[in-house]
Amino acid sequence: MADTASVYLVEHVLLVAIPDNITDTEIMSLQEELSTRIVSDGARGVVIDIAALEIVDTFVGRVLAQLSSMARLLAAETFVVGMRPAVAMTLVELGMDLHGSRTALTLSHALRALRSEGLA
């Protein structure tokens, strides 16, 4: 479990980088941890960096989408950042466009967007 994702709080934003080859259980517990932390840390934004993910299948795609909906219910905006080109094309082909999540090129792009909205 050495490479399990760690969640950091920076300027009211929860940051997490998902490691490659994360298991289904690990990503589910990450989802749980994030929802708890949004409330306990009073976070207004969540940034999920998936640059390390070589692939995103329907399971991970669904968890990402659920995470965004859940965060929105808790008044936090979720950004998925760092998606690789081939992953984006494959997800579109799978019919998963993550329309509930916002996206940005990188972590700093997401932070800039959150700041301009007064959320960071």
Binding site: F79, V80, M83, A88, V92, D97, T103, L105
Partner: peptide, 12 residues
């Protein structure tokens, strides 16, 4: 439209 969707997933 798929191209636009993929572009959005990339964050643009």
């Amino acid at each position: 439209l798929r191209t636009a969707a993929a572009v959005r997933l990339m964050g643009a």
